[in-house]
């Protein structure tokens, strides 16, 4: 009886066809999963993909303009500078006032408790390692960094690097009296999308640019 059932099961043409065709959609699904994994771990974190998906400026954001001789009023969340680092593939990174999640999706962000260029203090700028600051980790000492602000150009030189834990905010502390551009991102970048507990910073000293601290 059992043997008969088994024979009829094996002779069922529908089942034969089902098992014959089933591997194709399964392999297709596996391929899609593999493509997603490849995209997330290899393609998306690469700076070349970042260049393709470059954040165009939000047209609703008003860029403040400065009157000659006056330090401009820079509204929170507005773009106030464009950042370029010598030797980086990524060019013209927009720098916004503020560094919340929404801002960091658009470009680099300046911490609200830090200074603007030319104010003779610490300028703290952060951006994502998977996009704008992907090349920060491989930036050598001596590299020139330019900040084209709405009130004039500034040039800095990388003089040091720093690796610090994400719970340690002491490197960000304001320090007036000397102009320092402090650019940081997640470290190390090879971890791709994994949560990173370290941060790496470039410490840059001013080479050129107007000093506004005496005028204010």
């Amino acid at each position: 009886m059992k043997q008969e059932k088994r024979t009829s099961f094996k002779k069922n043409p529908f089942l034969k066809g089902f098992f014959l065709l089933l591997p194709f959609p399964l392999v297709f699904g596996a391929l899609i999963c593999a493509v997603v994994v490849l995209f997330q771990s290899v393609i998306a974190p690469s700076p070349y993909f970042g260049l393709l998906t470059y954040n165009k400026l939000d047209p609703s954001v008003t860029i403040p303009t400065a009157k000659e001789g006056e330090f401009p009023v820079i509204p929170y969340e507005s773009q106030w500078a464009t950042l370029n680092v010598q030797g980086w593939e990524r060019k013209d990174i927009p720098v916004f006032f503020g560094d919340n999640k929404a801002i960091l999706k658009k470009g680099a962000g300046m911490w609200v408790n830090s200074r603007f260029c030319g104010q003779n203090g610490k300028i703290v700028i952060s951006a994502h390692v998977t996009t704008d600051f992907h090349e920060l980790e491989v930036t050598p000492i001596g590299t020139l960094v330019t900040m084209d602000t709405v009130y004039g150009p500034y040039v800095y030189e990388v003089t040091d690097t720093l690796i610090f834990n994400y719970k340690d905010s002491s490197p960000l502390k304001p320090a007036d009296g000397e102009e320092v551009l402090f650019m940081y991102t997640c470290y190390p970048r090879k971890n791709g999308y994994q949560f990173k507990t370290e941060r790496m910073a470039l410490i840059c000293k001013k080479v050129e640019g107007k000093d506004w601290s005496a005028d204010e």
């Binding site: 699904g29 596996a30 999963c33 593999a34 997603v36 994994v37 997330q40 771990s41 560094d99 999640k101 960091l104 999706k105 962000g109 952060s126 951006a127 994502h128 390692v129 998977t130 996009t131 600051f133 610090f164 994400y166 719970k167 340690d168 905010s169 960000l172 940081y184 991102t185 997640c186 971890n191 999308y193 994994q194 949560f195 990173k196 941060r199």
Partner: peptide
């Protein structure tokens, strides 16, 4: 000190889900 790994923080577990599913 900001989270500067990815714009969307929930991406990491998705990676492993897709590997297992594949």
């Amino acid at each position: 000190v900001k989270k500067t790994n990815v714009p969307e923080t929930a991406a990491a577990p998705v990676n492993y889900t897709y590997v297992v599913l594949a």
